[in-house]
Design a protein around this nucleic acid. Structure first.
Lengths: 204, 204
DNA sequence: CGTTTTACTGAACGAGTGTTTAGTCTATTG
DNA sequence: CAATAGACTAAACACTCGTTCAGTAAAACG
């Protein structure tokens, strides 16, 4: 018998890959089992149920952004989302997995959106106080919209890809989208250089 | 035997309702059959397959916006999306159905996004030419982002609802979102009154 | 009228699902 | 070395799915 820990980690790895590609509902335990070269029963043996396996993959990939809001403010989710695509194929898979989590609804999607909402509000508040940005009447709602807009191109990535003729993870496409979103969010006072964080927020 | 046409229409009506609530993949023929008070076999008898039934419900609800782009420019999809919620429960169901179509991917989602892209580009072009708006470097990409951003709150309506404490179809919530999005898209030259179409585009 | 058509149903089929069970094999332990 | 524990599997179970089939009943047609 092999090392139980190694096997578990490998299974989570494969499961995450298939979930990212096919979605949670569209993935059967047998699909994961075949791709991992094991039996479906082994998945149940290790994780108890499909639901628990799903929860473990989510915890492994996105767990650090689903816990205490305040402590991890220095590792923003929005920044991670924009940096993942640069890390070759693994990053694209992470992005696709994140999309599936948001589409699956439930508590994880709720927590992740709340997290991005929190980050956007912090960013807006800081920029307003420093005078880089003109005042906003309802910062809370504006921050929520920024969070939602940030996820939108990813969630609609399939049809967007066909229109743009390339995936949104392509550096060229990504840059074009970032530039356009910056142009739309003309929050910055003219003559000032927009901070980098602002650019990342509106893009992905 | 009842009128075949009446029965078909009734079945499409019920199917649309269930699809809007549960999604296409999450709806079984038996669920629709029970809710319509018929047998599952009757659905196959009338429509041939589940896939064909799905296509008929999409055609019935959104067909007019999925055909010739140019001819129907006077009935924008984005405007319909913002007006549906005002027509009581039926409008909310239409909105939910639209969301499910976008989430299901495939050709219908593609056509609908292309339609909103087309509309947004026309709007941007007109506003730029008339001088109401400052120039935009890449109108095509900006229009795509506007279209995507317009759908975003609807597609993420579930977690958004929990954060805002009310559905985005509530007039109060809807107005708040529209006001904030207007504030974000500060495209209008200061001192000018924003046209109504602009407001609708950024809201829903 | 009798015949044909067709809306409609209950039951079953085959495929796929998550999960359970009984059992095999092997590394570790006492 | 013998016993135990646990990784692992093939097979089956109970269920749901879309779809098929044989048959019923009633409307439409000649």
């Amino acid at each position: 018998m092999r090392s139980a820990i190694d096997s578990r980690e490998h299974l989570i790895e494969v499961a995450t890959k298939v979930f990212a590609r096919e979605g949670f509902a569209g993935t059967s335990l047998r699909m994961i089992a075949v791709e991992a070269g094991v039996s479906a029963a082994l998945l149940v043996h290790h994780f108890g149920s499909k639901q628990r396996l799903i929860e473990e993959t989510i915890e492994t990939t996105l767990g650090e952004w689903m816990r205490d809001k305040d402590h991890l403010a220095e590792l923003p989710l929005s920044e991670a989302l924009s940096q993942w695509p640069q890390t070759a194929q693994d990053g694209q898979q992470k992005l696709a997995f994140f999309k599936q989590v948001m589409l699956s609804g439930g508590k994880p999607a709720q927590l992740l959106l709340e997290r991005m909402h929190f980050e956007a509000r912090e960013r807006l508040t800081a920029m307003t106080k420093s005078g880089v940005m003109r005042d906003i009447a309802d910062i809370d709602t504006a921050a929520l919209l920024l969070a939602v807009y940030g996820m939108a191109p990813l969630i609609l990535s399939e049809p967007v890809k066909k229109i743009l003729g390339g995936d949104i993870t392509d550096p060229e496409i990504s840059e074009k989208l970032a530039r356009s979103s910056l142009e739309l969010f003309a929050l910055i006072r003219e003559g000032q250089t927009p901070p980098q964080t602002k650019e990342r927020a509106g893009e992905k």
